[in-house]
Design a binder for these strands. Structure first.
Lengths: 155, 155
DNA sequence: AAGATAATATTAGAGGTCTAACATTATGCG
DNA sequence: CGCATAATGTTAGACCTCTAATATTATCTT
């Protein structure tokens, strides 16, 4: 049932090649990268968002749910879900702030640190692959563009 | 509770500026663009994925669930959800193939077409904004890079 | 013609993401 | 001090996305 009547386009053709709309291209590229990461991490039983949050927790130990939401540009409920899954998995633990009774500090467990190391190699390899065949000037343009697109999600 | 003990970074600083990891930048940029689209379309009661699928259905009328999954690079269950919501909303209708009893053809309703037109203006405006401040050479590099990143989600 | 293979559509289950609403705790102002 | 405001964490509900499994229908092979 490939091309029934009017020959549908293949992936990368038509509006979905380099001439397509930028927003569409951006979504496709991000979805493909997410899927590659998901599959690269699947046997370690960790998801890409969990890896991202775990990385931040390792960089800024003891920060709170709200802190993570701010630096990861996610909402508080989203972070609650991700940290909940990391906790259920044993990668992080939580403790109440000494004086501020409401705040919960999050710490990466030894098991979580070991897990993080194993993830890093694979994710970095995928990141490297994103640059294959591009000159430094092009890379600089891409970085500048992505940073600009990431700013002001509210605007 | 801004900077409690060790001064957490602001958005766009640290690993999240143009020097950050490309995969991370890509995710942030796509998430920001998705959120902008969500908010731009919210009052029309349609989501970005629904807009994407509706656009494809208008371009290739009468194609099936599986056709959409192929050209949008999504899985069949995902498309089932999105088309189901479009149908519940009255933007599309479905009919059985004349001879192939299993295939369901999807058609955009008049209401769906009118809706699509209203969406297009807003989405195109957001797409234009993605290019503000970038030269043609840079745009070409970005397009080439996004297309490369979007290829081979399985690899 | 009969059985094996492939394609289509759907359901179930898990996880991520948002908005809206709520409960709890800090902080600030009169 | 006491109340208003803000920050933190959570729950509820909706949607998108995946993998895995199932049912139905077409097609191919022998």
């Amino acid at each position: 049932m490939r091309n029934r009547q009017m020959s549908l386009p293949e992936a990368g053709e038509d509006k979905r090649g380099p001439e397509g709309r930028l927003g569409y291209l951006l979504r496709q590229a991000a979805a493909a990268h997410r899927l590659r990461m998901e599959r690269a991490l699947a046997d370690l039983d960790i998801t890409p968002p969990q890896f991202t949050v775990l990385t931040m927790l390792a960089s800024y130990p003891g920060c709170s749910n709200a802190d993570i939401a701010r630096i990861a540009v996610l909402t508080a409920p989203t972070v609650t879900v991700i940290v909940g899954n990391l906790e259920a998995r044993g990668a992080v633990t939580r403790r109440r702030h000494a004086e501020h009774g409401r705040i919960l500090h999050i710490d990466v467990s030894a098991q979580g640190l070991a897990l993080l190391e194993r993830c890093r190699e694979r994710v970095h390899a995928l990141d490297e692959a994103l640059l294959a065949g591009f000159a430094e000037e092009e890379e600089a343009a891409v970085r500048r563009w992505l940073s600009a697109a990431a700013r002001d999600p509210a605007a």
